[in-house]
C-alpha cells in the first residue's frame, strides 16, 4: 500500500474537470468524472503531446484542447477512429481524499 500517495481532497478537483500533479515522472492529469470517479493519465496527448488536463471531460472521456482527439480516461486509449494511447496510472478515492499510484 505504500505506493499509494495522497494527492488532495476530492473537492479540490472540479467535477468534469482535472488537476495537474507535478511529479518526478512528469506531469500527471488527475480527472474527476460527473459521478466522482477519479482517473489519472500522463498529461500528454498521444497526437502531438497536448495537455489533456486542459480538455473538456464528458462521461469517461476527455477531448484534447489542441486538435480535438478524444481519449478514454479508464484506459488511456484514443477513441476510434483516432489511434494512440497515453500512459494510465491508478487513482482512487478514499474517505474524500484522492490517491495516486505511480508504480
Amino acid at each position: 500500500m505504500s505506493e499509494w500517495m495522497r494527492i488532495c481532497p476530492l473537492e479540490e478537483i472540479p467535477r468534469l474537470g482535472s488537476r495537474v500533479v507535478q511529479t518526478g515522472k512528469g506531469d500527471i492529469a488527475v480527472f474527476r468524472s460527473g459521478t466522482d470517479e477519479v482517473f489519472a493519465l500522463r498529461d500528454q496527448c498521444p497526437h502531438k503531446g497536448g495537455p489533456l488536463s486542459q480538455g473538456i471531460v464528458s462521461d469517461r472521456k476527455v477531448t484534447c484542447p489542441l486538435h480535438g482527439l478524444t481519449v478514454q480516461l479508464d484506459s488511456g486509449e484514443a477513441v476510434a477512429p483516432d489511434k494512440g494511447c497515453t500512459h494510465r496510472y491508478r487513482a482512487r478515492v478514499d474517505k474524500g481524499e484522492v490517491y495516486l499510484n505511480l508504480s
Binding site: C8, V20, Q22, L102
Partner: peptide, 16 residues
Amino acid sequence: AREFEPIRFQPEIGSE
C-alpha cells in the same frame, strides 16, 4: 484559484 495551481508532489515523501 485551483484552476491555476498545480499540485506538487514528491514521491519519496509520499504526500502533497
